[in-house]
Nucleic acid binder design. Sequence first.
DNA 1: CAGTTCGCCTGGGGGC
DNA 2: TGCCCCCAGGCGAACT
Length: 281
Amino acid sequence: MPEGPEVQTVVDTLAGQIKDVKIAHAAFFHPKLAANKEPEQFARCLEGQAIRRFSRIGKYLILETDAYDWIVHLRMEGKFYVLDEHPEPKDKHIHALFDLEDGRCLAYRDTRKFGRMYLYDKVSDPHTLPVFDKVGPDILHPFTDEEKKKLYRQFKSGRAVKAILLDQAVIAGIGNIYADEILFASRIHPETKGKDLTEEEVDTLLSNARKILSDAIAHKGTTIRSYTSSLGVEGEYQDQLKVHQKEGEPCPVCQTPIEKRKVGQRSTYLCPHCQKPKSSD
DNA sequence: CAGTTCGCCTGGGGGC
DNA sequence: TGCCCCCAGGCGAACT
């Protein structure tokens, strides 16, 4: 479910709730959740560990314990909950439980079972872990000159600009909701080929991306559809959305009805008046 | 190599 | 009510 801002909200919330609290006992109930170790071994490693630092790259949570780097990707619907006690019986969508030394319990719940966890021996810089090999620079971290040059090169492609924005190997942290909002703010049609964009337009996209994602973090992310966001924290950014899931509603700028279509298999919302295709299309 | 489609999973909602 | 189909904020494998 989460994109960068929702994952950042999870990072901040978890840090406020369970920092430095030791895990007394861990158990996995869905074998695929532990992606790079046997679930048993994964669980045993975490016992006796406390999470000392919480951070994020793109949509990945980074939980640094005393001896390990614990990396979590929530994919579509993964969520953490801090419960007052071990749930008994647990509901069928809870796929891992981490009993804490103070009696509380950290539960991982994921109806679609897409989420994955990775555990590595602690390294000095988690960015160097293999799980991040194909992950580009986070949109909210400042880019080096080299990263910026590489980005311009990656935008020079025949793919739709929306597909490029969603490609985590190019830039990390943008998902389907915010991609629509970024393109609308930039007045760029989602199917514009990357190579048809000027460098100025790429700059506009990146600066709108930063602005929109930081604003979304300030609102604790977006909660759409009926379920609550991770940890039961309700984001508020859905009230700020201009086009995503607004099919038929008037564009906030020009009142033209918002249009829905598929771009690269993903539902896409745009204003057909504000976001005109380039003439070459 | 670049770009596109499929498969993974489950539940909710709309149409009939 | 029930059933069927489609949809969902993601990603990697498999394919062309």
